[in-house]
Design a protein around this nucleic acid. Structure first.
Length: 563
RNA sequence: UGGGGUGUAGUCAAGCGGUAAGACAUGGCACUUUGACUGCCACAUUCGGCGGUUCGAUUCCGUCCACCCCAGCCA
């Protein structure tokens, strides 16, 4: 009963795209068929904004028993490369989605070209010989109408002849374009004789090579491609809203049936403290401000993967933020909360000391080693346990000792007792300092009756700290990541270039000591370093040199109190 | 002075004429061999403003305001 109610409630909470789809289904449009497409241009790596679109495009198809195709929108050879078509496919699949078919806009170059010829023959298109500047100038402005091109009223024959010359490579790049003859005074700028075809002879296309000398523009390719494929719902982001009338116009000119793909737009993803434009990301990569597209600080799918994010955490995040038409900015803490929530239940616990200071248990026998039992995950007993070595000399976090501590400090301070995780209760007896007064060693006495699991271990102490046995410690590099930018909306900043707003501490590399068990960790495996954060094994890691990335820190309410 | 969109808490977001869900964030308490997790509590007398219709408006109408998109031979 309760389950039914919940199910009903879930059903009711549809996003507006799902509402549209259900309405279309109810009305029996397209015979109940649902088909979407994910249409990336292969000119860069996918980022988390694309993940939102992917979840939408593939999600709608799956939910309504339809199909979603992957279509590369490869109409501009100047910017595109096969390197990207491969990475895009890899990232989509990693996210957990599978397309029904892979298509390319370039599959339709012939059809599109034939269509352009038809437009010319019907008097709906003309070849313009003006320069880009002239065309831009006579386009008018949003508030003033444009003026017509002097080439607008050429004869069909002349247009045909010139378009052939363009297509045969007889015309230099930029000298001519094919324009749709629509309305230079239209309040929608996209109707002011939009360019349908431009000449590109200087860059071979990554699939068709030098076969084509003219290439269709987005507006003359996207809707048609949708139509050719049988797309029912062409979902995209808000900035294409103003293209929609043109999308419909071009299809209406040649459609030979009642079927029409419908474009619908939703808000794109913005996240605080990062940028979400390919152009800016490319600059960061090219300027060497990050280590590459897969730098763990990047919002790319490959960057998030390397950072330690899982496909399910990204999907859950997208699920939580929803789809609307409101152009907002998501607080990055929501993304962080999503990965913490997942890793809390799935990541094995381990010990690592990042800012080590030596703790000597003065009453523990020299040379003695005990193997202690550590639970891999207190949230999930089935994840088992492993052994942790314990000895007289240990590394602890230097933050875990203070000579003069405030009253709320529950860690090591002379006279105070703390528990060493999975081990004994120890009482701090003092420390040794160098000539500058810097603490170099901390001393404590352990209570042999308080080993974890023994009856004496019941005694309550306020604090528990972690450690790594000095003689067993394995050195490891840890890469501590923070927000890439130091301002919430680096893209908003008008005065400064966004690159000046980078957080200088977005990457801090530290040398840590980790417990020996971690030597067996696999690439990309996630762990929780207890009391510190979630870390994964970087692909740079080797058996001789372990490298960990901090995915996200644990919440630290003490840090707030201490402030 | 144009056209297309959008305004509900710090950030997202439900709500579809019957008296403001949820998540994150924030603050507090409890629990804790992770100052984590978990649990509990607090957090919009009001939905951009002002009018109108109605017994009743966040929902309908009008008007004003704010913000976003459009003047690439990019997608």
């Amino acid at each position: 009963m309760a389950e039914n109610i919940q199910e009903n409630e879930e059903k009711k909470n549809l996003n507006f795209i799902e509402e549209i789809v259900e309405e279309d289904l109810k009305e029996g449009r397209n015979g109940g068929r649902i088909q979407t497409r994910f249409p990336p241009e292969p000119n860069g790596y996918l980022h988390i904004g694309h993940a939102k679109a992917i979840c939408m495009d593939f999600g709608i198809a799956k939910k309504y028993n339809g199909i979603c195709n992957l279509r590369f929108d490869d109409t501009n050879p100047v910017k595109e490369d096969v390197e990207y078509v491969d990475s895009i496919q890899e990232d989509i699949q990693w996210l957990g989605f599978q397309w029904a078919n892979v298509y390319y806009a370039s599959d339709y170059f012939q059809q599109l070209w034939d269509l352009a010829v038809r437009f010319i023959k019907e008097g709906k298109a003309y070849v313009d010989e003006q320069t880009a500047e002239e065309i831009a100038k006579q386009k008018g402005t949003p508030t003033t109408p444009g003026t017509e091109s002097p080439f607008r009223n050429r004869s069909v024959e002349e247009n045909l002849r010139l378009f052939m010359e363009m297509s045969e490579g007889k015309i230099e790049d930029g000298k001519m374009v094919l324009r749709a003859k629509i309305d230079m005074a239209n309040p929608n700028m996209h109707f002011r004789d939009p360019i349908m075809y431009r000449i590109i002879t200087t860059h071979p296309h990554h699939r068709t090579g030098n076969k084509w000398k003219v290439y269709p523009m987005y507006d003359f390719a996207h809707g048609q491609s949708d139509y050719f494929e049988g797309v029912t719902h062409s979902l995209c982001t808000l900035e294409f809203e103003v293209h929609r009338p043109l999308y419909d116009y071009f299809i209406d000119q040649f459609a030979d049936s009642d079927y029409r793909p419908k474009q619908r737009e939703f808000n794109r993803l913005n996240i605080t403290y990062t940028v979400m434009s390919k152009r800016k990301m490319l600059q960061l990569v090219q300027d060497g401000l990050v280590r590459g597209w897969d730098d763990p600080r990047m919002p790319t799918i490959c960057g998030l993967r390397r950072r330690g994010y899982t496909p399910s955490s990204i999907r859950n995040f997208i699920n939580r933020i929803g789809y609307t038409k409101y152009d907002g900015v998501i607080d990055v803490s929501l993304l962080e909360a999503t990965i913490r929530e997942e890793l809390n239940t799935t990541a094995m616990r381990a010990s690592a000391v990042i800012n080590p200071i030596k703790l000597v248990l003065t009453n523990y026998p020299e040379g003695k080693v005990e193997m202690l039992e550590a639970i891999n995950n207190p949230e999930d007993e089935s994840m088992g346990k492993h052994e942790v070595p314990f000895s007289r000399e240990l590394y602890i976090e230097s933050d875990d000792f203070m000579e003069d501590a405030p009253k709320k400090y529950f860690r090591l301070t002379p006279g105070n007792e703390v528990r060493l995780k999975n081990a004994y209760i120890v009482k701090c007896t003092g420390c040794k300092k160098d000539e500058n007064g810097k603490v170099v060693e901390v001393y404590a006495e352990y209570d042999p009756e308080t080993k974890s699991g023994m009856p004496g271990s019941d005694r309550k102490v306020k604090g528990t700290i972690h450690f790594v046995s000095v003689q067993h410690a394995v050195p490891a590099e840890v890469r501590l990541y923070d927000r890439l930018f130091s301002v919430e909306n680096p893209g908003d900043e008008k005065e400064k270039d966004f690159r000046e707003l980078l957080n200088p501490n977005s990457l801090v590399i530290a040398n840590a000591f980790v417990e020996p068990w971690l030597k067996n960790a696999k690439t990309l495996q996630n762990f929780q370093f207890q009391r510190i954060g979630y870390f994964n094994v970087d692909p740079d890691s080797t058996p001789d040199k372990l490298v960990f990335n901090r995915t996200v820190a644990l919440k630290d309410s003490w840090a707030k109190i201490a402030k």
